[in-house]
Simulated assay, not measured.
Amino acid sequence: MLNNEPPAQNRARTLFDLIAIGLVVAILTIIHYTNYHYEVDYHILLQFAYYLPVIYAAMRFGPAGGIISSFVITLLFLPLMTHFQHTMTPAAKYTQWVEVGLINVIGWLTGFLTEEERKAKRKYQRALTVQKELVEKLKREGQERERLEGEIRQTERVIALGHMSAGLAHEIRNPLGIMKVSIQMLAQEKSDDGVVTEYCRVLLEECERLNRLMSEFLTFARPKELVRERIPVGKLLDEEVSLIQPTLWQKNIELEQARNSIDRQEVEVDPDQMKQVILNILLNAIDAQGEGGVIHLEGVQQDGLVGFAVSDEGPGISPDAMPYIYDPFFTTKEKGTGLGLSVVHRILDQHGGKISATNRSKRGVRVEILLPSV
C-alpha cells in the first residue's frame, strides 16, 4: 500500500478506519437481530448492506481486510440465517447461502485486485525514482564531461603557447640584457643630467619588468621535472603562511585557519612547485582582499583527495571572466602578467590534482586545491 503520510497520522487513520468498519458491521447486525420478526426479504435486503464494509475493508487493508471482515460478518449473520431456514423455500435457502459465499468471495477478490493495483503503483513509483536517478546521473556525467573537455582545451592551449613562448622568451632575453647594460652605462655617463637619469631609471624598471615576465614565461613554457617526496600538507602550508605574514600585517588582514583535519595527511609532491602554488593562491587572495578583513584558510578532503581552500572577501570574479581565469595572459589586475593561475593549473595537472574557483554567496572568491592523498 502506497502511503506517504507520517507514521503517527497513518496510525490514527488506520484506527479510525477500523472503528468505522466495526461500527457499520455492528449497526447492521443490531438491526438484523432487533428486527428478526420482519419478513425474510427484509433481512435479505439488509444483508446486501454488508457488502459496503467488506469492500471498504478490502480496499483499505488488502486481501486480509476483505477476508477477515467477510468472515466476521458470516459468523455474525449465521445464527439469524439459521433461524429463518424453516420458513424459507429451497430456492430462498440456496440464494441465502450463495449470498454468504459471495460476500466472502467479493471480500477476497476486492482485496486481491486492490493489492495488485498497489503493487503496480509501487512498481511505477520505483521506476519513476530510478528514472529520476538516471536523469540526475546523466546530468552529473554531462557536467563532468564538460569540465574535462574544458580542462583538455586548457591543456592544449597551454602546450601550444608553451612551445611558442619558449623560443620567443629566449630570443627576447638576449637583446633585453644588452639594452639593460647599455642603459646602465648611459646613466653613469649622464649622471649629472637629471632628465636623462630619470629616463634611464624608467627604462631600467621596464627592463626589469620585462625580465621578470620572460622568467615567468620560461617557467611556464619549460616546466621542471617533478622531484616528488612525501610531505604532510600542514608542513607545506606552514612554510608559505610564514612567508606572507609580513604582507598580512602590513595590510591589516587576519588569516583565519581551520586545517587540523588535514595537517598530518601526506601527499607525494614536488615541494618547491607546490610551495609556488600555495604562495600564488595566498597572494592572489591578499591582492583581492585589499585592506583589512579576514582571509579563511581551511582543510579540504574529498574522494581520496586532500588539500586546502582559500576564501577572501574581495569583489569576486565576474561570471564573464570566470571561464578564462586559467588562460595564459588573461588577467584582471592592472600590473598582472596573467601567468600565475596558468602555472598553478599546469603544476596541479602534473601532480594529478585539481583547482576550482567559485564566487562566494555574499562576496569574495573561494579557491580550492586538491591533491591525491598518500
Rank of each mutant, 00 (worst) to 15 (best):
L282C: 11
Q301W: 01
V365K: 05
Q154E: 11
H37I: 13
L45R: 04
Y124W: 09
V267M: 06
Q85C: 05
N252H: 13
L186M: 09
D320W: 02
S242T: 06
P271Q: 11
K275N: 12
W97T: 14
S215K: 07
P271A: 14
A127S: 10
L341T: 03
R13W: 05
V233I: 09
Y38Q: 15
S242Q: 10
G150L: 02
A57T: 07
K121D: 12
K275A: 13
L138F: 01
V344G: 00
T34G: 03
H163C: 10
R363V: 09
G111P: 01
I30C: 12
L161H: 02
G194A: 08
G22D: 06
V158Y: 06
D320Q: 12
E117D: 14
I21L: 07
V306D: 08
M322R: 00
G338N: 03
D238V: 04
G194Q: 11
K132G: 14
R126H: 13
D17R: 10
T247Q: 08
T89F: 12
G66M: 02
G353E: 05
I103Y: 03
A20E: 05
K180D: 03
E146W: 09
Q265Y: 00
L176E: 02
G304H: 07
R140S: 07
K119F: 06
S215L: 06
F112N: 15
Q47N: 13
E313Q: 15
P175E: 08
R264Q: 05
S356H: 10
E229W: 00
A120M: 07
F329W: 04
G290P: 02
F16T: 05
Y124A: 14
I295A: 06
H83S: 03
V181S: 15
M214L: 13
K93E: 11
V233G: 03
Y124H: 14
P315S: 08
L109H: 09
I44V: 14
F330S: 00
G111I: 07
G340C: 05
L226Y: 00
I172W: 00
R118K: 13
Q276L: 13
E256S: 12
F112P: 04
Q184N: 12
Q143K: 09
H37C: 00
L371V: 11
A58E: 01
E156H: 08
A169L: 01
S69V: 14
G162C: 07
